[in-house]
């Protein structure tokens, strides 16, 4: 079954970003086909320059970097979010790929289960 997780939250500030990512990892661990889309503020979850110093939370980028170990290879962000937030793709986790809004729509159409967090 194809699971699509659509994330929209920044990495720190609310526990749902981290706990939902754990859910995605569990789906992959149970042999499901998993795609992750980091839309809107969730693009900050992919920043390889993020600083968790004052949050007293574990660094989010650790899980992001571990995604390929869980055989999660379909990791996406939206090109529009890069532009509107003035983020350069070179500052994002290297295994994440850009999607256009049309490509996102196609991805959503092809998924069996879509969950947004």
């Amino acid at each position: 079954m194809t699971f699509l997780y659509l994330f929209t939250r920044a990495p720190y500030g609310h526990s749902i970003a981290r706990e939902a990512l754990d859910m995605a990892l569990a789906s992959a661990a149970f042999d499901q086909h998993v795609s992750l889309v980091f839309a809107q503020d969730a693009i900050y979850q992919l920043l390889n320059t993020q600083d968790n110093g004052n949050t007293e939370k574990k660094p989010h980028i650790g899980v992001i970097n571990a995604l390929p170990l869980y055989e999660i290879e379909n990791i996406y962000y939206l090109s529009d979010d890069c532009t509107s937030r003035n983020i350069s793709a070179t500052n994002l986790a290297p295994h994440a790929k850009a999607l256009s809004a049309t490509e996102l729509a196609d991805l959503m159409r092809s998924a069996d289960r879509i969950q947004s967090f």
Partner: peptide, 23 residues
């Protein structure tokens, strides 16, 4: 229980619905 039970529910139910928005 563990998240595996949620994954199992997603696989076996006809519909999946979430209650609780992104505050």
């Amino acid at each position: 229980g563990g998240l595996g039970q949620w994954v199992d529910a997603c696989q076996n139910a006809d519909r999946v619905i979430r209650f609780g928005g992104n505050a």
